[in-house]
Each structure stands twice: as structure tokens, then as C-alpha cells.
Design a protein around this nucleic acid. Structure first.
Length: 266
DNA sequence: TTGTGTTTTATTGCCTCC
DNA sequence: GGAGGCAATAAAACACAA
């Protein structure tokens, strides 16, 4: 780039350069002291009055850009903390106080806002990532639990089918009263495994077509074993899973402005 | 000392607001 | 239309490892 940038170095006397927006920037005396020693560096202007001292326009050696002194930066930072926008009056006051051009103060604030914004974005990213990680961890544990419950259902179903087959065989060869007694016995045994597959009311071993699940909580998120059909599986399912709801809820919580959109679409 | 990556200062061009 | 803000960018200044 560097089109139209003019540096006039006074080589210790003063300098002038033209900045954007038509602002001529006059630079004050510069020292030859090494840059690493900030405290000993001289500012662009030794005083506001120097800026308009004619002798600064005399020399025209190429100027290099110099950093603000620690004190200047400190004051600018303090001012930025109180208000990150710069109204004209404050700009003029600050410039006078610091021995800088108002344009320099404005540029400093502009760059400072840009740095602040970058940092803010980083912070937001970290927060979002932490939130995502936590949600992901929750999701993983729920999936694990779901898998565990599914295998439990499969195992219990297999046991149940075995018993039903046995009962069918027995019922062909035994009198009715013996069969009733066996059914009651079987009922008690299954109940003792901790499963809730049998109603408290009494023997209900005959396949009634009812769901194995005590309530609707699992509908839609548990895949039933082959041959076992949920009562809810009647085509009325709207296709939304439990996890979608969870994520939708989490999404709404974190991003109330995101109108119903799931988090993974952002 | 030098090469390289980062930070700071400054410019340019575009946009918005009054 | 001018002033001011912002994004993108250049380039000097600086830090630091090899």
C-alpha cells in the first residue's frame, strides 16, 4: 500500500506526515534513543505548541513510525476503560494532554476497539466451546445409558419369549388348573428380577399387545427388539427425538435469539 | 546476527448517520 | 456532503529462538 503516505523527518527537529481523511500530522522532535527503552523515548510531540512550531517543517528526511510512550499508552488505556468511544471534546483534551495529534488519538482508539473486539470474540468462542463440550458430554452419557437400557430390554424380552414358548408347550399337555398355578409362579419369578414388565394386579402373561414400557417416556428413543412393537409406534411419531428436544432446549437457553433453530445449524 | 512471528501505528476505502 | 466508524491491510517496531 503506502500510497500517498508522506513522511518528513526533521531528524531531531520535527516532522510532518499526512494521514488519511485529510489530516496533516505534524511530528515533534524525535530522539535517537533505542526503542526498547520506552521510558526514555520521546513522544511524537514534545508539547502541543511544538506541533505548530515552524522549525519542524524545515527538515524533510524520511520518517519512521514510532510507538507511543508507556505514559501515553497508560493514559489512553485509562481513558478507554471509562469510555471506548471518543467524543470530539475528549479527543482534543487527550491529544493536548498527551502531546499528540487528535487524529493519532482517534486512530489509537480505533485500533484499541479492534483489539478489544478480537479479544471479546476469543472469549465468546471459549465460552461457547465450554458449553458445547458440556452438552456433548451429557449427550454421550445419555446415549450410553440408552444403549444399556436397550440391551436390558432385549435380554428380558428373550427370557420372556422362552417362557411363553414353555408355557405354550405345557398348556398343550396339562389340565387348566395346573397351568394357572404355573403362570402365577412364573409371574413371581419374573417380578423378582427387578423388571417392571408384569402388572401388580395379577397374572398377565398372555401377550396382550401392550407396550413393555411403563409410560411414554421412552417412546421414540428406545428401539424395540424385533417382534416387539410399541403402542406408540402407530405412525403418529413426528420424527423428533428426545435428544433433539434436549438440544433444542439447550440451544434456546444459550441462544434465545436463535428462533427455533437447532444449535448445529448455526 | 538473522530470520520469523507478533504487536502497534497508520492508511485506505467503504458505510452509516445527521 | 462531511464526520466518524469499521474492516482490511501495510509496514515499522519489537520479541525471540536458532
Amino acid at each position: 500500500m503506502e500510497s500517498g503516505r508522506l513522511f518528513f523527518d526533521p531528524s531531531c527537529q520535527g516532522n510532518m506526515l499526512f494521514l488519511g481523511h485529510g489530516d496533516p500530522l505534524f511530528r515533534g522532535p524525535r530522539s535517537m534513543i533505542a526503542m526498547e527503552d520506552n521510558s526514555r523515548r520521546r513522544p511524537f510531540f514534545s508539547s502541543p505548541d511544538d506541533m505548530f512550531d515552524e522549525e519542524y517543517y524545515d527538515e524533510q528526511l524520511p520518517e519512521k513510525k514510532r510507538r507511543l510512550t508507556a505514559e501515553q499508552v497508560h493514559l489512553l488505556e485509562k481513558s478507554f476503560e471509562t469510555e471506548n468511544k471518543l467524543e470530539p471534546e475528549r479527543k482534543t483534551q487527550l491529544a493536548k494532554k498527551l502531546g499528540l495529534q487528535p487524529r493519532q488519538v482517534a486512530v489509537w482508539f480505533q485500533n484499541r476497539r479492534a483489539r478489544w473486539k478480537t479479544k471479546q470474540l476469543e472469549r465468546d468462542y471459549d465460552l461457547l466451546k465450554a458449553s458445547y463440550d458440556s452438552l456433548r458430554s451429557n449427550y454421550d452419557s445419555v446415549v450410553k445409558e440408552n444403549e444399556k437400557l436397550k440391551s436390558e430390554v432385549t435380554s428380558l424380552t428373550e427370557k420372556l419369549v422362552d417362557k411363553e414358548v414353555s408355557m405354550a408347550l405345557i398348556s398343550d399337555s396339562l389340565p387348566a388348573e395346573t397351568l394357572d398355578a404355573s403362570a402365577i409362579q412364573l409371574n413371581v419369578k419374573v417380578e423378582s428380577t427387578g423388571s417392571a414388565v408384569v402388572d401388580d394386579d395379577g397374572p398377565q402373561l398372555v401377550d396382550s399387545g401392550d407396550s413393555y414400557f411403563p409410560n411414554d417416556n421412552y417412546a421414540g428413543c428406545v428401539v424395540l427388539p424385533d417382534g416387539v412393537q410399541s403402542e406408540e409406534d402407530d405412525g403418529s411419531d413426528d420424527g423428533r427425538s428426545y435428544f433433539q428436544d434436549v438440544f433444542a432446549a439447550a440451544s434456546a437457553e444459550e441462544h434465545p435469539h436463535e428462533d427455533g433453530e437447532p444449535w448445529w445449524v448455526w
